[in-house]
Simulated assay, not measured.
Amino acid sequence: MNDSVAVRVWDLPTRVFHVLLAVLVTAAIVTAEVGGDWMAWHLRCGEAVLSLLAFRWAWGLAGGRWSRFTNFLPTPSRLARALRGRASADERIGHNALGALSVWAFLLLLTLQVATGLVADDDVDTTGPLNAHVGARLVKRASHWHAGWGADLILALIALHVLAIAWYAWRKREPLLRAMWSGDKPLPPATPASRDDAASRGLALALWLAAVAGVWAMLRWVG
């Protein structure tokens, strides 16, 4: 766009969240595959992911404009317009409808995966930190999901995510990774930007520290 300017779409807390989540989920997958003594690190990765997810659920309410859940709800009408190639300009600024569907799937599935991991038992030598507080029937179901369908669906979502990014970069010439790294996209000057100043970053830090403290307290006093 000849008359476009760099507009802040992804605030710094959202970008940091994405990077840390990718690193921690990858580490959790690798340590689970290696097994043995590495399962202790698998549990630590899961606990760190839990604190990140708690932060993101809060940031979806208090974060920058395009990071808020209200701005990327994958409603039926939005999905229909996206599939027909008729999405409005506003609907293409942050997550489009299909991208929003992927984000919600990730958040919900990872939350379920962490929750089941907290009580799971691998029948070898690793149990979740809250395993002793639930019944045997729930432990069995949670363990089956965590090591089975839950893990497989996460791997499938990761593969789809990578393919979608590659497709957008190749066919539509949209460098999604660059925008996520810098936070900016070339857009019309009147496009509203996400707030990303010292105050909002301070709020994000406070929310993340609260999430970390909450997870630590739950594992320390309940586990």
Rank of each mutant, 00 (worst) to 15 (best):
P175I: 11
V119R: 03
A151Q: 14
A147T: 15
M180N: 07
D123S: 11
K185L: 02
E174R: 11
A151L: 12
A169D: 07
R178I: 11
D125G: 14
L155E: 09
K140S: 12
N131S: 09
D184G: 00
L155P: 01
R173P: 03
P189W: 04
K185T: 10
K172R: 15
V119P: 04
A120I: 11
H133T: 13
I165W: 01
T127E: 07
L157C: 04
V119C: 08
L163N: 09
A142S: 06
L177W: 10
W145G: 03
D121S: 09
G117E: 09
A166S: 03
G148Q: 10
S182W: 00
A166K: 08
T127R: 14
V162I: 15
A159V: 14
D121P: 10
S182L: 02
G150N: 07
G117P: 11
V124T: 15
A179H: 15
T126L: 04
W181E: 01
A190W: 08
A132H: 14
W181P: 02
P188N: 08
D122K: 08
V124E: 13
L138F: 06
P129T: 13
W170Y: 08
R171W: 06
M180I: 10
W167N: 05
L138Y: 01
L155A: 12
K185Y: 01
V134C: 00
T126D: 02
M180K: 05
P192T: 13
V134N: 01
I165P: 02
